[in-house]
Amino acid sequence: MLPRFKYLRPKSFEEALELLDKYGEQAKLLAGGTDLIVKMKDDVVKPKYVIDLSRLEELKFISKEDGVIKIGALTTLREIETSPIIRENVHVLSDAVEKMASWQIRNLGTIGGNLCNASPAADTAPPLLVLEAELKLTSSEGERTVPIDQFFTGPGETILKNNELLTEIQIPIMSNHAGTAFLKLGRRFAHTLSIVSVATLVVVEDDVFKDVRIALGSVAPTPVRAKKTEDRFRGLSATKDVVEKNCVWVVEDVSPISDVRASAEYRKEMSIVLTKRALIEALDEVR
């Protein structure tokens, strides 16, 4: 049963910002509803106001201009999964999205919702982290753009202010050829929450790792970049042996917990295995 709340549906972006100014502190934003409604039914959140953003057509788009891919925050996961722009330029994102939930839920769930819900298991986060996406946050006071690795502050927590809205995800297209991969381990082979998810990005020049980026989900209070491990790789020769030898350090970058899905110990060990596999897959793509 849904608890009682006041339902507000702004017809324009400006109205949405006004409502946020007025009620932001006591409101929750409804995008696809696939997280919020469940949490409300389970009594986890009891907002006094629910602001339904579904009419804000201006936040539903995927475009490519000046070397940047821009995704409106209300773009559904299914739209991302099937977008040729995403598939051709940053397939690591569509690879992750197509493994999320079920087709029906992807029809409703949005990329903005997935990020703002800020689950450590949000599967869109690791690809966006390795792509070094930037997030545009808007309020009546203005706009700011922040790198995604500064966005998450804890489970269910972000830097968003009460009157602020995530409006756009900006992904810079890399000029040099990068290999990417996304891997996810769950308790079954589909429709599953991640026990561990890993996205990788590698740039190789003269058989040497010029850039290595690793991001993981479900192994820390937020989705995380494994920066210490990344640093170890830069400058090393781009071989499977090097990957196998150095991927073990990823445990230094993660801090998983035990829950009904898996133990912390298993998550640690799987972080290594998935990092290794995702790096090799990314490597295979550039060679």
Partner: peptide
């Protein structure tokens, strides 16, 4: 391979289809 109820002090911790997993067509 996967189905399991998790109890703590007699309370089922995974009384839902998110965390009580059953096979899908992929499995």
């Amino acid at each position: 391979l996967m189905e399991e109820l998790v109890f703590k002090d007699g309370v089922i911790l995974n009384a839902n289809l998110t965390d009580y997993v059953i096979p899908t067509v992929e499995d």
